[in-house]
Amino acid sequence: MKPIKNKINHILKTELNGILYIVPTPIGNFSDITQRALTILTNVDMIAAENIYHTHVLLKNFKISNKLISINQKNEKKQSKKIIEKLITGKKIALVSNAGTPVINDPGFILIKNCHKNKIKVTPLPGACAAIAALSASGIASNRFCYEGFLPNKKIARCNLLQSLKKETRTIIFYESPHRILNSITDIVNEIGSNRNIVLIKEISKYWESIYHGTSSELLTWLQKDKKNCKGEMVIIIEGFQKLSGKKMLTQQICHTLNLIRKEISLKKTIELTAKIYNIKKNILYNYALNHFKE
């Protein structure tokens, strides 16, 4: 009888508890908010907000009046306990960040983890997320990707992270701020490579929204040309590492160089010299030579 009694108690406890709603908010354009999000923000008992003033502006725009409670990086541990206590009594609470989907690089992880520990229902709403929006418009493979949040502030830590991702085959997503973008792209050029395809998407859904495509070195040059290019909220999308086959490695420039040198010196010396110039394996050049040169 005891297992059945425990199960009944568990069900009753779950039903008596409240609900925590994870509510995405617009990342720039207020029109992007969903009708379901507006309904929940209107009808919950209170809203747990990363920034009370910021959320007040959003609510005022939609003529919503509701109680706000703060939960941010500094007070999350303490506030989570208070919110859990309210949820246990049956309250319904919405969690929002300043913009986008809560918890994605924003406070809320501790609260949600404690909700699961206390058998409190957590209901996520679909909605705005800068990383996903940027990825969808990047033109870079989106079937496999890894999200890395903001790059570290300090150069050594940043370079170490980038070095560890140099041979990551999935598409890589970063967030970055205007005052660090030049340093970060410089380190990406040095640690990941100057020719890696990269996309910088700024101010998503806002009036100044823009998308820049190019190699990492081209992006760095573009940013250095005008300080205005470094402004705005940014998402960096980097193409994953691709192990090139022999045919792909032999660019038109390499083949042209090989043909020019071959006219002046022996095939063996031609291959050795070209291999050194382009840091390419000699056997790849030999295979090409066998099919294109006549002794």
Rank of each mutant, 00 (worst) to 15 (best):
N259C: 13
K86Q: 15
N43M: 09
L244F: 05
T101S: 05
E176D: 05
E218Q: 15
D226K: 01
L219H: 06
Q79L: 09
S136C: 00
E272S: 13
K13C: 04
R196E: 03
K294S: 14
E272N: 08
N66W: 03
K281S: 12
F150A: 13
N195P: 04
N160H: 11
G214T: 10
L162E: 00
T171M: 05
P102G: 09
N61C: 02
G127A: 10
L162S: 11
N114K: 00
D32L: 02
I64G: 14
E239K: 09
N160V: 09
V235H: 12
T34F: 11
I112W: 00
F109K: 06
E203I: 11
I104H: 07
T39L: 14
T101P: 06
I84E: 00
G28P: 12
L58A: 07
E264F: 10
I156N: 04
T14W: 00
L111V: 01
N153W: 06
N61Y: 15
L20K: 02
Y288K: 05
Y147C: 14
R36V: 13
N118F: 02
M1P: 08
S136P: 02
K82P: 05
V103C: 15
I201Y: 10
D45Y: 11
K281G: 01
A99K: 02
I140Q: 03
Y288I: 09
Y21S: 13
A94R: 00
N259R: 04
H116S: 14
K5P: 10
E85H: 09
K166W: 10
Q163V: 03
K269P: 10
H256E: 01
P107S: 05
I204L: 15
V57S: 09
K78I: 08
K263Y: 06
I84Q: 03
S266F: 15
A94K: 09
I120F: 01
S245M: 13
H292W: 06
D187N: 14
I261M: 04
E209A: 14
L250V: 04
K247Q: 00
R158Y: 11
E176H: 07
N72K: 12
Q224I: 03
I120K: 01
I84N: 03
Y278S: 03
E148H: 08
S177N: 05
S205N: 06
K225S: 14
K228R: 06
I93T: 08
N195T: 01
H292E: 14
L125H: 03
L87I: 00
N51Q: 07
R262S: 13
C230A: 10
L16Q: 15
A128M: 10
E85I: 06
I8M: 11
L20N: 04
T14M: 02
A94P: 15
V235C: 06
L161F: 07
L244Q: 12
E148K: 07
Y53M: 12
I11W: 12
K228I: 02
I271S: 14
S210M: 08
A134I: 01
E239P: 14
L258H: 01
G246H: 11
L162P: 09
I22F: 13
K247A: 03
